[in-house]
Write a protein that binds this DNA or RNA. Sequence first.
DNA 1: CGAGTGCCGTAACGTACGGTACGGTACCCC
DNA 2: GGGGTACCGTACCGTACGTTACGGCACTCG
Lengths: 220, 220
Amino acid sequence: MKTPDDSAGQDQLSERQQAVLDAVLALMVAGEALTMTAVARRASCSKETLYKWFGDRDGLLAATVRWQASKVRAGNFDRQAMDAGALRESLSRFAANWLTVISSPTSIALNRLAISHAGSHETNLGAIVLANGRLAIGERVKPLLKAGREAGILAFDDTETAFRTFIGLVGRDVQVRLLLGDRLKLSPATIAADADRAAGQFITLYGTGRPAPAAINSNA
Amino acid sequence: MKTPDDSAGQDQLSERQQAVLDAVLALMVAGEALTMTAVARRASCSKETLYKWFGDRDGLLAATVRWQASKVRAGNFDRQAMDAGALRESLSRFAANWLTVISSPTSIALNRLAISHAGSHETNLGAIVLANGRLAIGERVKPLLKAGREAGILAFDDTETAFRTFIGLVGRDVQVRLLLGDRLKLSPATIAADADRAAGQFITLYGTGRPAPAAINSNA
DNA sequence: CGAGTGCCGTAACGTACGGTACGGTACCCC
DNA sequence: GGGGTACCGTACCGTACGTTACGGCACTCG
């Protein structure tokens, strides 16, 4: 068998294959070495099977990254009544969701793996993470921003610039610090507070100010 | 000789040792594997010497990270005439300087290395990078922010929070994207524009709006 | 029931690499 | 000049790990 099973190359993973990839994720999160032997032992499968399904080690890691990415997709927030309060609420929810994701051990381990590979290997795990992380959330937030602009609540020229400002206000240096091993404690309360602060700051920067409810300064 | 030479453990590096560490940096930036043999060949020294000077591979990498960190320290910006224009100018300069650093190939390669180590190894390269990168720039920017507050130009309660907002506005997701291999082109013009935008946004968020000199007691 | 298939567990192989040892050379000090 | 020191270049050793091969077991299908 020279051809690696296509079922792993495509997005059709059997239950067993998913279990194997979850074992890889478990190893990553535990900080243990990602050797083929360790994966086989952890997943209770043979190395021969790993090679048959995923081709080689890089294929296994790529499949793992894709597998995790497919699990993260949260539901889209549909636009409902678009007033200033709802907008701020939606932005805050996005922010909290994203902060929760990037501070999770799985995300940290996955990003570390992708970044390690980005330098040397050509199996671009970084591109996969980028496409499913940064870009994916962008495609979900931007419609919200545009809806806010259409409703006259927000004002900006370039959606991408506005979105990146929002990302910056939310994440700040959190992700890089976590990746570097900083013991940063992000409790749900902290995340909620940061998300709300970021949403408020974003509206301060890009809001038209006209439909102003209350409490731009929420430090009461 | 069992004891690794202390001259490498401390911060006293001979010219030759510095040249060796520069060779390590050159390998890192070139994306080549950081094997001891490769370092020895690139630096035209023997592996025995590497082990004598730096103990082991981790010691060599740690010394390299420290060496690069010692080269980055830019001069402090002294406070001069503190009005709104000067503050914005100083903030913009800091932002441009930082963006230039984090987008440099050396910084990217170094952070990738530190992040790779952060998961498994216990020779915490991440802590070194963190201490000399994020924390160091914080200690240089915070006095500026405080000076702005004393002059009545800025208003904030927690200096750390204000600083982190600034960092977020400047860096946004640039660093993580670069680490993941995103082909992001940061020309000097782009950097200058981003730095200016960030400084303006920060002042919008934290500025008092009026550089009133005696405004300390006039908060409603 | 026998052949085929898919998979587990493990042994085996080849190589890369961290770490060590050793010979050779240049330089310093007595 | 002789011994010591510092270093280069290279050969060498042990191990870890990616990859392959093989024996055995359960299940399916004719």
